[in-house]
Nucleic acid binder design. Sequence first.
DNA 1: CAGGAAAAGTGCGTGTACGCAAATTTGCGC
DNA 2: GCGCAAATTTGCGTACACGCACTTTTCCTG
Lengths: 216, 216
Amino acid sequence: MTTPPGLREQKKQATREALREAALRLAVERGPDQVRVEDIAEAAGVSPRTYNNYFASREQAIVAAVTADREARIAAAIAARPAGVRLAEAITEAVIQQYTNTSERDSEVLLLITSRTALRDAFLDTTAEIEPPLTAVIAQRLGDTGAQTARVLAASVAAAVRIALEGWLRPAGTAGATGSFGAAGLVVPSGSLSDQLRAALAPLAPAFDAAERRTP
Amino acid sequence: MTTPPGLREQKKQATREALREAALRLAVERGPDQVRVEDIAEAAGVSPRTYNNYFASREQAIVAAVTADREARIAAAIAARPAGVRLAEAITEAVIQQYTNTSERDSEVLLLITSRTALRDAFLDTTAEIEPPLTAVIAQRLGDTGAQTARVLAASVAAAVRIALEGWLRPAGTAGATGSFGAAGLVVPSGSLSDQLRAALAPLAPAFDAAERRTP
DNA sequence: CAGGAAAAGTGCGTGTACGCAAATTTGCGC
DNA sequence: GCGCAAATTTGCGTACACGCACTTTTCCTG
């Protein structure tokens, strides 16, 4: 059913990644406001029109360089957990694991992202991407009868993650200007990201428990 | 604290409504694709630039004509319910009440909205507007300790409503073309809107119960 | 009621988003 | 290998979104 990765699809992914990388590189080099779609397209070796076949806005390519494939990794992380544990717990831990897996580079880029409202919004919008794979994983656990329930719970998780991220990087936006920054570790505005995520997801746990109880 | 409605604010609301009405009227008259921002602005007696001070996209004004003030009405409806009933129930009923309160005109316009993807998306996006008032109402019931919980639950409700609406008007989009339509009642794709909303909100009830139990 | 600060409205310029149709590339069967 | 059907890329044209600086309106205070 799943077509073996043809050369066509391969090339498409290559183009997508080239655009992502070019966008991020240019944004870091010049500052996010000094990068036009035209520049990104040129750097990736495609036409500006093609850029918009891959990304619907200038910001998407930049944030995609950080969030790429996060949805798939979260879904895999959940599926990897033993079937015995509570669904709520499996999801919480999987989400935390993936979102705190930020490399050194990522943490630098996050500063850049928070520095522009448009970028920040685009970044937060990527939380919606985890919905489809999350829905699939949840539906699998709940059985076919709970398809609608799975969608609602997945969307709720995405919303909670979004809120956690907002809370986490809000104070960061108020302080620094565009230019230099430094410090050793991550920016730790109001509690660690792990704590924010745990706190945001906790209220949903009873809903997961009830859903699981209905189809054990 | 709350400034008495100055003449300034009054005029702003008047402009906003003028834009809404003009947008909807033109969209119905000519078809949604034959209406430019310039046209709407002219019909409302403001400059095109001012249009974008009120609405961030061409579609927003059109859908706003249908969804105007829905958030406030939902919040009021919840607050109006006796403090004794379950929060989950109060919210569910209030939401259903407000979303099924469609006038004759609204049902006609909904057909128009579903006929264009961009309009449909803009319409679904309006569900996010209920979050802030919903957060306030929920937070009030849960006490100040549950502020974060209130946000998450409110966002979950908004997500559930969105899913319900999607499911409700999906089949409607596949059938009819732009032009004529008729029939007596509302379009009833897959179950009534009430049923869709109830089904989408049901999975969240345990989360509300648990939150209430924590601060009774 | 005059003065002036704050807010809303406007014009302009730039970059963006995307429908459409033509040109190019890819993959498959022969 | 050949050629064709499907998918992708591209150019073009149009409309939109919005930052910025400037004008006009509102409304508060003395």
